[in-house]
Design a protein around this nucleic acid. Structure first.
Length: 610
RNA sequence: GCGCCUGUAGCUCAGCGGAUAGAGCGUUUGCCUCCGGAGCAAAAGGCCAGGGGUUCGAGUCCCUUCAGGCGCACCA
C-alpha cells in the first residue's frame, strides 16, 4: 500500500464531529448558579425596559454586597436616561416569582444588584453536590463525546526526566482530567524522544564497550554515563562521530541487532519513567514516540514536494518557505535524513487520520512556538486546513534557577524529577514527624509513609498549577516545598479537617441534601462557602475552554479558604440546635466533596487524615 | 533585525471592558479551657513599567517607547 494513501483525507469534515463549544444548551447540565443567572436574565427582560441581547450579568467584586449585578450603562444610554435613574426604574419594575433563587433586586448607582434567596440557594447548591458526589461540577454536555488528543510530558529515551519536564507533565495531566470531566473523549499521547542521531551514539558506544556494570542496578543512569563517555571520546576522535552515524543508519534501515538494542533502551527507560508517572498518578493512552512515525516520513516529504509546499534545494535538502508570514525551515537534511519537524508534520497528519480530533493539543514549552506554527502551517498548505485549525499549542514559560539561569544537562545543573519528588516527600515526612511529636496528629507508620507521599507530590503538582502557564517559573526549593498559604497542603489539610469532623459526628452517611434542612445555612460565612461551592461548574467549563488548570487550583483554594473562615466562626458539632448541627454537617460534607473533586482535577490526592 | 511571551504590593502571583485593584510569602499585632493553630483575624505596603488613544467607564482593548525571557534551516 502506498504510504500516501495513509494520509488521504478519507474522512471528510462533514463526517467529523464539529469542534467548538457545545451547540445545544439542552445538553448542558444546569447547576444552581446557571439557573440563578437565567432567572435573573428572565426577570430583567420581563420588565420590558432592557433588551434581552443587551443583558450582560457580571459577578460583583467581593466588597459589593450582591450576588449578581447588571451594569446598566449601555441600556441607559440607548434609552436616553441617566444611569442611576434608569437602574432604579428597572429595579422597581422587577417582580420575582415565589420560588425564585433570587431574593431581592435593588439599584446601586449604575448597577442593578441582585441578591440570592439564601434558603433556596443553599438548598439548590447542596442538592447539586449531593446528587452528583464525585461527579459534582462535571458537564458531559460540553464535550459531547468529541475526541481530543492531548500530547504532553514527552521525555527523551536514555535520559532522565528533569525539572524541565515537570510543567508539561503536570499541566497536561490536569488538562486531561478537566477535559474528561467535560465529556470529551481524550486520548493522551506521550511523544517520546526515541529517535535521532543520539541513538547512533548509544549503539556505537555499546558496540565498543558493552554496557557498564551499573546497567543492572540503575540502567538509565548507566545510559546517561555511557552517552557522556562516548560524547567525550568523540571530541578527541572524530572517527567516532562517523561510527555513530553509521549505527543510526543501521537502525533506520532496520538492522536487526541495532533494532533489538534500541528496543532494549526504550524498554528500560520507559520502565523507569513509568515508576515516576505512577507516583504522579498519570497514565497515557499511547506512547507513540518519534520512531512510530518513521515509516511515514518519506511519503510526508514527497507529498509536501508534490503539492508544492516544499521544494528541493540544490544540495538536496528539502525546505518549506512561507514568504513573509513565517521563517522557512527544513523538512529533510541534505544527506537525506529527516528532522524533528518532519516527524511532527507526520504526527499531526497521523492524528487527523486516526482520530479526526476536535482538538489536537500540544502541551510543550514556549520555545517551540515557532516550530508549531511552522508545522501547523505546513499541514494547512498540504491541504488539511481542518487539522491545522484544530491544532493548538499550549505553551508555558521555562523553568529557571533562582538566578534566572536555565537548567542545563550539559553544564550539569539539571535537577532530576525523581530528586524533586523524593525531596518533597522527605520534607513532608519530616513535617509529619514534627506534628506527631507535638501530639497534633496520630498516624501509623504506614500512614505516615503514604501521607508523606501524598503531601509531597501534591505540593509539587500544585506549585506548577496554581499560576498561569505563560510566565516562566523560578525553581525555588523553599517556595516549592512550602506548606503554608496557597499550597496543596492547605487544601488537603482543610479536607482532612472536614473528614475529621464527620468522623467525630459519628452519624450514618448523610446521603442526600433532603436529610437535613439546608435552609438553615444563612449566615454570611455559610453563604460564602455555598457560593464558592456553586462556582465549580463554571470554573471547570472555563478551565476547559481556556486550557487553564490554574482556574481549578484557584477555585479549590478559595473553597478551602471560605470554609476555614466559616469553621473558625461557627461550631458544627456543638451547634445551637440538632437541626443546625445536621445542616452544618451537610455543608462540611459537601465542602469535603468539593475539595476532593477540585484536587482530583489537578491530579492531587486528598487524604482522610494527615 | 524580525516574531512570540512577560512587566500589578519588598518577593511569588490572581484580576472575564464595570463599583473602593486582590491572595500567598515576608513584616507588625491579636486569637489554642473550644469540632485538627499545617489555622483565623487585623495593620502596614500600589502613579497596575512609561507615554498616547478608543470608551459613559481601561490594570484589562488599540498604538508606541522601555525592560526581561525565548525563538528565528541541516539539534530535539
Amino acid at each position: 500500500m502506498s504510504l500516501l494513501a495513509v494520509f488521504a483525507p478519507h474522512r471528510t469534515a462533514a463526517q467529523v464531529p464539529r469542534s467548538g463549544p457545545a451547540k445545544s444548551n439542552r445538553m448542558k447540565r444546569k447547576y444552581a448558579l446557571d439557573r440563578a443567572r437565567a432567572q435573573a436574565s428572565d426577570v430583567l427582560a420581563a420588565t420590558g425596559l432592557v433588551a434581552a441581547d443587551a443583558m450582560t450579568l457580571v459577578e460583583p467584586k467581593p466588597n459589593i454586597p450582591a450576588d449578581l449585578a447588571f451594569p446598566i450603562f449601555a441600556a441607559a444610554k440607548s434609552a436616553g436616561a441617566n444611569p442611576a435613574d434608569f437602574a432604579r426604574r428597572v429595579a422597581d419594575a422587577v417582580t420575582l416569582p415565589a420560588d425564585s433563587l433570587l431574593g431581592a433586586v435593588e439599584a446601586a448607582d449604575g448597577f442593578v444588584n441582585i441578591h440570592f434567596a439564601p434558603e433556596r440557594f443553599a438548598r439548590a447548591v447542596l442538592d447539586d453536590v449531593f446528587s452528583a458526589d464525585d461527579a459534582y461540577g462535571r458537564d458531559a454536555g460540553i464535550g459531547a463525546e468529541q475526541t481530543l488528543v492531548v500530547e504532553f510530558s514527552s521525555p527523551n529515551i536514555a535520559r532522565k526526566m528533569h525539572v524541565g519536564h515537570l510543567r508539561t507533565t503536570v499541566i497536561g495531566n490536569s488538562l486531561r482530567n478537566i477535559l474528561v470531566a467535560l465529556g470529551y473523549r481524550v486520548i493522551t499521547d506521550n511523544h517520546l524522544g526515541d529517535w535521532g542521531t543520539q541513538f547512533g551514539s548509544l549503539l556505537a558506544a555499546h558496540a565498543l564497550w558493552g554496557w557498564p556494570p551499573q546497567m543492572e542496578t540503575d540502567p538509565v543512569e548507566a545510559l546517561v554515563q555511557i552517552y557522556a563517555r562516548f560524547h567525550a571520546a568523540a571530541e578527541a576522535d572524530p572517527a567516532l562521530r562517523d561510527l555513530a552515524r553509521q549505527w543510526f543508519k543501521r537502525l533506520e534501515s532496520g538492522d536487526e541487532a541495532a533494532r533489538a538494542t534500541w528496543k532494549q533502551l526504550v524498554k528500560i527507560t520507559l520502565e523507569e519513567f513509568d515508576r515516576t508517572y505512577q507516583r504522579l498518578n498519570i497514565t497515557f493512552d499511547t506512547t507513540h514516540g518519534e520512531s512510530f512515525y518513521e515509516p511515514m516520513l518519506e511519503s510526508v516529504v514527497r507529498e509536501a514536494i508534490d503539492k508544492g509546499v516544499a521544494r528541493v534545494e540544490a544540495d538536496g535538502a528539502v525546505s518549506v518557505g512561507f514568504g513573509e508570514a513565517l521563517p522557512s525551515y527544513l523538512l529533510q537534511k541534505s544527506d537525506g535524513a529527516t528532522l524533528y519537524q518532519t516527524r511532527d508534520v507526520a504526527t499531526c497528519l497521523y492524528r487527523w487520520h486516526e482520530y479526526a480530533p476536535a482538538r489536537n493539543i500540544y502541551v510543550v514549552g514556549q520555545e517551540q512556538t515557532l516550530h508549531f506554527q511552522q508545522v501547523f502551517e505546513t499541514v494547512r498548505r498540504m491541504g488539511y486546513p481542518e487539522i491545522a485549525d484544530r491544532s493548538v499549542h499550549i505553551s508555558f514559560g521555562a523553568v529557571t534557577d533562582v538566578g534566572g539561569q536555565r537548567f542545563s544537562m550539559r553544564r550539569g545543573t539539571a535537577i532530576f524529577l525523581d530528586e524533586v519528588l523524593d525531596e518533597a516527600v522527605a520534607r513532608a515526612r519530616q513535617t509529619i514527624g514534627e506534628k506527631m511529636a507535638e501530639g497534633k496528629t496520630e498516624l501509623s507508620e504506614a500512614e505516615q509513609e503514604t501521607t508523606a507521599e501524598i503531601i509531597g507530590i501534591g505540593a509539587i503538582i500544585y506549585n506548577d498549577l496554581y499560576q498561569g502557564p505563560e510566565r516562566g517559573i523560578r525553581f525555588d526549593w523553599d517556595k516549592l516545598l512550602s506548606f503554608e498559604g496557597n499550597t496543596a497542603l492547605y487544601i488537603q489539610y482543610t479536607h482532612a479537617r472536614c473528614r475529621s469532623i464527620l468522623r467525630k459526628a459519628d452519624l450514618s452517611p448523610l446521603g442526600r441534601a433532603g436529610d437535613f434542612n439546608a435552609a438553615l445555612l444563612t449566615t454570611p460565612e455559610e453563604q460564602a462557602v455555598l457560593k464558592q461551592l456553586a462556582r465549580l461548574p463554571h470554573a471547570l467549563r472555563e478551565a476547559g475552554e481556556k486550557f487553564l488548570p490554574a482556574l481549578i487550583a484557584e477555585w479549590t483554594y478559595n473553597l478551602a479558604r471560605e470554609f476555614a473562615r466559616f469553621y473558625h466562626e461557627h461550631p458544627v458539632l456543638d451547634a445551637a440546635t440538632p437541626e443546625l448541627r445536621q445542616a452544618r454537617l451537610g455543608l462540611v460534607q459537601a465542602v469535603g466533596q468539593g475539595l476532593r473533586n477540585g484536587l482530583a482535577l489537578l491530579g492531587i490526592r486528598a487524604p482522610e487524615r494527615m
